[in-house]
Design a protein around this nucleic acid. Structure first.
Length: 302
DNA sequence: CTCCAGGGATGAT
DNA sequence: ATCATCCATGGA
């Protein structure tokens, strides 16, 4: 197999793929197999070199230089990580996360795939989101082959729109099935043009995304960050909320979502999305989960 | 403001 | 083998 060699300094492939922003890459041999849009891809990292091979359904006009550009763009190898990290606030929680997450990048995901996946993510944990993504792809996604691997790419909005809520439920979507179906229909019909939304301001984009079934503030911010390159978008899930409460507001009792959001916007600044991703990944991987022995009765009241 | 559906992976017992 | 826990949106 022929592997393109792509320079990738300041990049940690494994950590990036395991940081809760993308859910379809699988370990394979010394690397990972997955897809970038319609393109099946195998990847492995050796120090500062990313080795990659890809195969499309249509072989015409597909040349290595453009393939390398596709991979570099997807993994945002052009993001100036040093500058981004230097823009983070200087506090103990942030500094620990920054050190821990060296090489973690916010990647550029296809819009529909990202939106659909995060609609499915609501009330789910990473392992389960991966399972749902696999179910959807294996049931509805087109097949590609890369080397000896078989890859199911993410199904289009049109394909999802042509299914039924019952079919989607078989993919373990539960009540998310009707939201995914409704949003797929809006996108497939052209009533919503995800590409055109890219022209909107952050505020307007968030409003438009939140109009879609199954999309609230958290999912909208994830899609803005991971598919629209709005690096200031700061999704607040339970992990991040826990970090914020414990590390930034250890004494505050009344912190509603509105106040938290106002704080994150002004405190973390234009690269807040990166800061959030680093805090999130660090918390998730270092047992940030309050010592699982929440046994002795004291589950706070909610 | 509060309450809660909903369901599969995960880890504790 | 059973049981509690994790979780975001939207509606009551």
């Amino acid at each position: 197999m022929q592997l393109a060699k792509i320079p990738a300094p300041d990049f940690d492939l494994a950590m990036t793929l395991d940081s809760g922003q993308v859910f379809h890459w699988e370990k394979a041999g010394a690397g990972f197999v997955g897809a970038i849009g319609d393109l099946a891809v195998y990847l492995e990292q050796q120090k500062d070199i990313l080795k990659a091979s890809g195969s499309a359904l249509r072989l015409d006009g597909f040349k290595p230089p453009s393939f390398q550009r596709v991979v570099s763009h997807y993994f945002a190898l052009d993001h100036q990580l040093a500058e981004i990290c230097a823009s983070f606030p200087d506090d103990p929680a942030m500094n620990a996360a920054k050190q821990f997450c060296r090489g973690l990048r916010i990647i550029r995901q296809p819009k529909w795939e990202c939106l659909a996946t995060f609609i499915c993510s609501s009330m789910k944990q990473v392992a389960h989101i991966r399972q749902i993504s696999r179910n959807l792809r294996e049931r509805f996604g087109e097949i590609r082959k890369i080397d000896s691997y078989v890859v199911h790419i993410f199904p289009s909005a049109e394909r999802i729109a042509a299914t039924s809520a019952g079919e989607l439920r078989k993919c373990a979507l539960g009540y998310r099935a009707k939201n995914l179906l409704a949003t797929a229909r809006l996108v497939a019909s052209g009533d919503v043009d995800l590409g055109k939304l890219a022209a909107l301001s952050d505020i307007d984009l968030r409003v438009r995304l939140c109009e879609l079934p199954g999309v609230g503030a958290k999912v909208a911010n994830c899609v803005m960050l991971f598919a629209y390159e709005r690096l200031g978008a700061f999704p607040i899930d339970v992990w991040i909320e826990r970090v914020l409460r414990e590390r930034y507001f250890p004494r505050a009792l009344k912190l509603n979502a509105r106040r938290l959001e106002a704080f994150t916007q002004q405190y973390f600044g234009g690269h807040g999305g990166y800061a959030q991703q680093y805090l999130f990944h660090h918390a998730r991987k270092t047992g940030g989960r309050r010592a699982v022995g929440a046994r002795n009765g004291t589950r706070q009241k909610r």
